[in-house]
Amino acid sequence: MSGLWLLADSRLPTGGHAHSGGIEAAVRRGLVSAPDDVAGWLGGRVPTAGLVTAAPSAAACALAAAAPAPARALSARGEPSDALVDRTFPSRTGVSERGEESAALAGRGFPSCGELRSPDWARWDAAISARTPVAALREVSRTQGRAMLRTVRSAWPDAAIDGLGARPHQALVLGVATAAANGSPHDAAALAVHHLVGQVCSAAVRLLGLDPLALAGVHARALDEHRDVIDRAADAGTDAAALDDPDHLPSATTPLPEVLAVLHARSEGALFAS
């Protein structure tokens, strides 16, 4: 259980600090100036983008809890600092490298491990891609998934990461990590929403110099007000996992943040990666 505190910590080294949950693009257009505006942004995003990432997190947690542990624990980054050669790069030891969209589709049917079978992650990965129509946001999700995979290998060597590939969507890795930390699908959904809210609030503080105490309030209220989103995501993800059918994952989006995400990716001088 205690591992969950680590997964919830914004200091978990998975690169989250470089992402603004999309709000930088809104800030740069003068659309955000006060904590209430941040709450408004979250009010549109949590029930849509939040639901869409929380549900597969919950599903992945449920799937991973029933999956075999990996055959081998990969070495984590802990070499002495004078190891100049033969450095191990954990993220390069994954299954596939680039072209994930096609690789994910082509790579169906992973080897079984005795009675237990690894989940067919490629189908779940593809379902998340389908629910993320903006290519820039798929890339952001994969970048963060790759980073979290690196953290998971180090912190939870027994996590059921076999078959996830080198750059899976972040939601899947979060779910697998939650399972490794003995968390529930509901925990995974809550963590997904918590991190979305946290990225947005933290970025608003850094970009606008807003009062971090006020934003802590926005963060707490968002988690409270959107409990139903977490519940729905947990239920939908658990059901989809039980049916072994990613087609049951929910889809929802709002138009302006999606469009801004593309404009952000194409802009010069952005401070956040997304």
Binding site: G15, A18, T143, R206, L207, L271, F272, A273
Partner: peptide, 20 residues
Amino acid sequence: VRTGCCPHTAIRDDITANLD
């Protein structure tokens, strides 16, 4: 590499983006 206004974090506390 973009550091989200956290240049120190990006080279020390959370080296993710640089490792990538």
